[in-house]
Design a protein around this nucleic acid. Structure first.
Lengths: 319, 319
DNA sequence: CAAGAGTATAACTGAACGTTATGAATGACC
DNA sequence: GGTCATTCATAACGTTCAGTTATACTCTTG
């Protein structure tokens, strides 16, 4: 029945004391106010303004509207301000989830960049493995999931389906073979290990998904690896390797943070990549704070030694 | 930027969880909601609703709007209710001013009638002589002035100008001559006194305006009256007359409340009327509570012995 | 895989709301 | 007291906005 325009008009008339002045204040022409008041009166079912000679005065009902106008308009303005703050990156919240080894450098760098550029945007960060972070994204409790997929490896589970999501590749992380320093391969000139020659080795597997990758890579090389140890802790993996208890496939990004004197890393043949990517929804990627964080992640990824591939490849048709 | 419709839509989406359900709740079609949200998002500059598969979920900015919606809409609704109450006579205020002798029966009867019909309409009543009540009407501190004019008497003062006002005649009050019971006229058969025969009498004058009326009536009869007393208190006037200290012109309405054993009232020739009328502004007369009070005054006037003339004669052209 | 449910888009329609131009009435100022 | 400026009301008109229906597309579900 009554909308914000009506309130604004009534308040302006109350403040200014005439239709003409109210019109100027609101940037309208005088007849616009005249008609507006007439419409309001029709809707209200009673006179709102007393036209006394060439001046006007509010009636009791008119006073009621004018009196309510300010608080209502103020509350509305507050809401607009909040939204504008979010739109203008002077506010906003981003809930980021990333797998543990991304937390080491990629994510902190991005977070600090956002914090520096937009100090009022608050980012909450939770460590989570990709299946978990993706379902959080689906459930609406997360805005950006930093996940990884092993190129060419289909784990075949719906939980990791990124269909409908927007995927931004960040880093193509080379998967390397780590062997003890006294391993024969450690002395190879080429620093490249042929996977097919590793059938008789004892293997150490990482997280479940990494284990899946190991199995698939080996299957493609023609054998099933003998996995003696499983641990998600890469520090432990290194220790095990150093002690000669096995060898492992370890993404390069991890090797840069978890190092060990007595091990050697080699490239593998055929090469294998772990793709690190930021996953969000098409809608969320247009939320300013989320977009800013995505950009920061890209920037942070570009600062990594390894090259970054193409940008923002949406998996669904553009709207 | 954002109006009540937008708030209503955002709240409905938040409550119902889908565009379709929100549309039903608001009585719109589904595309209407879809477009409304798109418009809102354009204005807000950010995404408000996350379309995730075939369900929707509010973004942070969307939540902000939905959260603000209820208080704002509630305040607005309260304002509408207040106005509707005034329009529906379940509320409202009427500031009535009447000259003292109208307060005796005419006004109380009308007030009690309004009170009975519309118990939530509050009427404030102030005694005031016509010049005063009319200027209050002009100043906006009064809604209805019950005034009187002596027919054919122009007091020639701007203060009593009813130009631009709406005048509702209530009672045509006959002006009578009051003489002591032992006055020769008191024994006249016709009970009609010819003014032109009263040149040698001693007169008692009432209020300033009544005095003006007396002077004019006598001038038209061909003489200037000898006024020995002036008092606004008609009880005193009666006392003076009873004591044989003078005679006076007294409106019939007053004679009905202020009586005295030792006086006699006669009609005069030529006859003179005091017209009692309700004065308000054209706008105020359309305010429900004011209109109801005017009607009650008319009703109350009709209950008086004297006949009431035509109704609601506006002195300005109709708008 | 088909059906059901939900949203997006297109095309259309009508009304609402603004504008300019003009009229009528009031009040102020010579 | 007449004239002039000011103020509100009305008329006519055009544009924009917001709704409708119809239809396409996507996702979930049995």
């Amino acid at each position: 029945m009554i909308d914000t325009a009506g309130l604004r008009v009534m308040r302006a008339i109350a403040d200014e004391g005439s239709f003409t002045a109210a019109a100027h204040k609101l940037g309208f022409s005088q007849p616009a106010i005249s008609q507006m008041v007439r419409r309001l009166e029709e809707r209200a079912g009673t006179v709102l303004v007393e036209r006394i000679g060439r001046t006007v005065r509010l009636t009791e009902a008119g006073e009621v509207l004018a009196r309510h106008a300010s608080p209502v308009l103020a509350a509305l303005d507050a809401a607009e301000q909040e939204v504008a703050a979010i739109a203008g990156l002077r506010s906003g919240r981003v809930r980021l989830m990333a797998f543990p080894s991304a937390s080491a450098t990629l994510v902190p760098k991005a977070l600090s960049h956002v914090k520096r550029e937009y100090p009022d945007v608050s980012i909450t960060f939770t460590e989570a493995e990709p299946p978990e972070s993706l379902s959080a994204l689906r459930a609406g409790t997360c805005d950006i999931a930093v996940a990884f997929t092993y190129e060419g490896v289909d784990l075949g589970r719906g939980e990791e389906d990124v269909d409908g999501f927007e995927v931004t590749p960040l880093i193509d992380d080379e998967v390397r073979l780590v062997v003890p320093a006294d391993h024969p391969l450690a002395r190879s000139k080429s620093k490249v290990a042929d996977l097919s020659t590793l059938e008789d080795e004892t293997w150490i597997a990482g997280c479940p998904r990494c284990r899946g990758h190991l199995l698939q890579v080996c299957r493609e090389a023609g054998f099933a690896p003998h996995v003696a140890f499983e641990t998600e802790d890469y520090v432990a993996v290194m220790g095990l390797i150093a002690e000669g208890l096995g060898i492992a496939l370890v993404p390069d990004l991890i090797l840069r943070t978890v190092q060990h004197e007595d091990v050697v890393a080699l490239s593998i043949n055929p090469p294998s990549l772990r793709r690190i990517e930021a996953v969000t929804t098409p809608d969320l990627s247009r939320v300013p704070a989320v977009k800013a964080t995505l950009d920061a992640l890209l920037l942070s990824a570009a600062a990594q030694p390894k090259p970054v591939r193409s940008r923002a490849r949406a998996t669904t048709a553009a709207r």
